[in-house]
């Protein structure tokens, strides 16, 4: 086992264990906190995938902003007090079945696919490549996404505002 493999398995474990904790923790705060290693693990995987820019953004946005946001909302909605409250609903067995089936199916599929070599070389400088992509081929997506941000900002403020 080389370094890459080791790193990979470690990060994969971080992701999956963290994910497990997210969906299984009784305590919501624990669940929210568990998001951090999960997302960080994902970021690490990005590094291994030579996606430095995405890693950065992942950490900035996901781990930084979204996790905090979730924590805030948990605290605002008193979900932290619900230790005695049941957290799982009645669908557990069925959900297990369905998810299990789906995962198995995905694995079957991806294992059957004959992965060939990549079509070209990875660009050396990541951010530059991303930037160029955003501004030339996918400029429309870029602009629309910014609009979406605007809309959601406004919407969130409107929705979450206190009445009166």
């Amino acid at each position: 086992m080389n370094a890459e493999a080791l790193a990979f398995y470690a990060l994969a474990a971080m992701v999956l264990v963290g994910g497990f904790l997210v969906v299984q923790s009784r305590n919501l705060v624990h669940a929210a906190i568990s998001l951090v290693p999960t997302l960080l693990g994902v970021a690490g995987l990005y590094v291994l995938l030579n996606a430095e820019f995405v890693t950065a953004i992942q950490i900035l946005i996901y781990v930084g902003a979204i996790t905090v946001l979730i924590l805030f909302v948990i605290l605002l909605t008193e979900g932290a007090t619900g230790l005695r409250v049941r957290q799982r609903n009645e669908q557990v067995p069925l959900a297990l079945l369905v998810c299990g089936t789906l995962v198995v199916l995905f694995l079957v599929v991806l294992l059957r696919v004959p992965w060939g070599p990549p079509t070209g070389p990875m660009p050396a400088y990541n951010p530059g490549a991303v930037g160029r992509s955003f501004l030339i081929p996918y400029v429309l997506a870029f602009e629309v996404t910014s609009l979406v941000i605007l809309a959601s900002l406004v919407g969130a403020i409107v929705v979450a505002r206190r009445e009166g």
Binding site: V15, L16, G19, F20, V22, V23, L28, A31, A32, L35, V42, I70, V73, I74, T77, G79, G82, V85, R86, Q87, R88, N89, Q91, V92, L94, A95, L96, V98, C99, G100, L102, V103, F106, L107, L110
Partner: peptide, 22 residues
């Protein structure tokens, strides 16, 4: 795939709305 499965399980199973978002 496994992560996706976990996430889907969480969405399907959790009672708290925020947990579902997670």
């Amino acid at each position: 795939a496994l992560l996706f499965g976990l996430g889907l399980y969480g969405v399907l199973t959790r009672r708290n709305a925020v947990a579902i978002l997670m």
